[in-house]
């Protein structure tokens, strides 16, 4: 995002979130009841649980929120969403904040979920399909499930380590699944991205 685009918001992070973050307009509805804070499966790994994140947004703690590791701990379990008395789409706001921080380049460098998710998306839009639920599985299971398990067992720690350390590029091994209309799919994604970037103030 350009300097100017963010400058407007320097004194009002809440407004910025409302405008630029997916489902961000919901944040002001939070009544700080704390129910969501106890809902996350990886609870102890969240330095700031969702409730706190919402409080910090209203307090204008832009830097602290966007550089936080916390949103990246979201497993998309939807526990919070079905419990929130105000029906905030908390899961999507966490995803939206993570995406926003990622696009601004403020998200923590080397954050494993950030890296995995980015590889996943890039793999997906390359051909329109992922060869596996995530690229890691695709890596292990390229020769079918049983062989994949054997591969996974043999190289699990090593393999994952290498992928994370970027010494192994799973993209090279991904097989032939893909959509036929790749040109159309690419044009569609490009258009969607263009509209979103324009709307949210990301420089093209």
């Amino acid at each position: 995002m350009s300097e100017q685009a963010t400058a407007r918001y320097t004194n009002d992070f809440l407004k910025e979130v409302e405008k630029n973050v997916e489902e961000g307009h919901w944040v002001k509805m939070c009544m700080q009841c704390g129910v969501c804070a106890g809902s996350c499966p990886l609870g102890s790994a969240w330095e700031h649980p969702p409730q706190e994140i919402f409080m910090m947004i209203r307090a204008g703690k832009r830097e602290e929120v966007l550089t936080s590791d916390s949103m990246w701990m979201c497993t998309s379990c939807y526990n919070c969403m079905v419990r929130c008395p105000r029906q905030l789409p908390i899961t999507h706001i966490m995803h939206g904040l993570a995406n926003y921080a990622h696009r601004l380049g403020l998200a923590p460098k080397g954050q494993p979920t950030r890296e995995t998710a980015t590889l996943f998306w890039n793999n997906l839009i390359k051909k329109g399909r992922v060869n596996e639920l995530t690229f890691s599985l695709a890596l292990y299971f390229k020769d079918g499930f049983v062989q994949g398990i054997k591969n996974a067992l043999n190289m699990q720690s090593i393999g994952l380590g290498l992928v994370m350390a970027k010494r192994l590029n799973p993209m090279e091994i991904l097989g032939g699944h893909g959509v036929k209309d790749q040109a159309g799919l690419k044009a569609m994604i490009a258009k969607a991205r263009e509209i979103e970037d324009r709307k949210k103030g990301f420089s093209a």
């Binding site: 997916e22 950030r114 997906l124 329109g128 991205r193």
Partner: peptide, 23 residues
Amino acid sequence: PDWNCCGASIGYAEGGELPRLAL
């Protein structure tokens, strides 16, 4: 015919909102 990946939940990080909706 010619279905594509839905982007799953984890697609959010790089995908953002509209590209995911479009998928």
